[in-house]
C-alpha cells in the first residue's frame, strides 16, 4: 500500500528549502526563468498577484492542469478502477482497486514494472514506476473541480496524513508523480515538468495553500 511513509521517510529539508528559495525569485530578476515550461506556467508567472490568497488560488489552478491531465487523473479515479489514454477509457484488461494494488492474482505489478517497457511487436509501451499503483480512493479526483481537489489534498483525513511539506515533496520528488512527464512510447506527457510542478506546489504552500473558489 502506498502511503506517505514513502515520502516522509526520505524527507529532506534541504530540497524543500532549495525549492522555496528558487520560487522566491521575482520576475524582475534579469535572468528570469521562462514563464512557461511545456505548457505549464512557472511560479514566476503568478508573482505579480499581490494577495496571497489570490496568488495561491491561481497557483493551484495551474497545478490542477497537471493533476487533471490524463497522465495523472487516469490513476486518481473516484469510483471504479483506473482509466487509460487521453480519452480516459476504462483500463484494459479490466482491473479493480481491490486491496489497493489490484485484485488478488491480478495486481498492478502483475503487468507494471519499475520502469516503462516498450513493446517489441508494435508501437507503444507499458508504463512502469516504483511502485505502480492507484491513488487511494480518498485521493480520487476525476470529475472534481480544482477547488474540490484543493480541499481534498489538504485534508489530512483524506490525504494520508500529509503535511504541506509532504505534499511539496511528493509533487517534487515522487517517482510515480515523475512518470507523468516520462510516460513512455506512445503517450503524451503532462504539461510542464516535475520541477515546475514541484515549484508551483511549493509556491502555493508558501502563499498559504489557499484554494480556488468554486
Amino acid at each position: 500500500m502506498r502511503t506517505l511513509n514513502i515520502a516522509g521517510s526520505t524527507f529532506s529539508i534541504a530540497i524543500i528549502a532549495a525549492l522555496l528559495s528558487a520560487c522566491g525569485q521575482g520576475p524582475s530578476e534579469p535572468a528570469a526563468p521562462a514563464n512557461d515550461v511545456n505548457g505549464l506556467k512557472t511560479p514566476a508567472a503568478f508573482a505579480d498577484i499581490a494577495d496571497d490568497a489570490d496568488r495561491a488560488a491561481a497557483l493551484f489552478g495551474e497545478m490542477s492542469k497537471v493533476m487533471l491531465h490524463p497522465r495523472c487523473a487516469n490513476c486518481h479515479p473516484r469510483e471504479g478502477g483506473p482509466t487509460q489514454g487521453d480519452d480516459m477509457h476504462p483500463h484494459s484488461p479490466p482491473v479493480v482497486r481491490g486491496f489497493g494494488m489490484g485484485a488478488a492474482g491480478m495486481e498492478c505489478s502483475t503487468c507494471h514494472g519499475p520502469a516503462n517497457f516498450a513493446f517489441a511487436s508494435m508501437e507503444g509501451s507499458i508504463p512502469g514506476a516504483v511502485p505502480w499503483m492507484l491513488a487511494p480512493q480518498s485521493m480520487g479526483w476525476v470529475g472534481a473541480t480544482p477547488a474540490e481537489i484543493c480541499a481534498q489534498i489538504k485534508d489530512t483525513e483524506r490525504n494520508g496524513g500529509r503535511t504541506l511539506d509532504d505534499l511539496v515533496f511528493h509533487n517534487s520528488e515522487d517517482h510515480l508523480v515523475n512518470w507523468a512527464w516520462h510516460p513512455g512510447e506512445g503517450r503524451a506527457p503532462a504539461p510542464g515538468d516535475q520541477e515546475t510542478f514541484g515549484a508551483l506546489t511549493a509556491a502555493w504552500a508558501q502563499a498559504g495553500a489557499h484554494c480556488p473558489a468554486g
Partner: peptide, 9 residues
C-alpha cells in the same frame, strides 16, 4: 467475483 477479478487478464 474474486475469481473473475483475478482472471480478468
Amino acid at each position: 467475483e474474486e475469481i473473475d477479478d483475478a482472471l480478468a487478464g
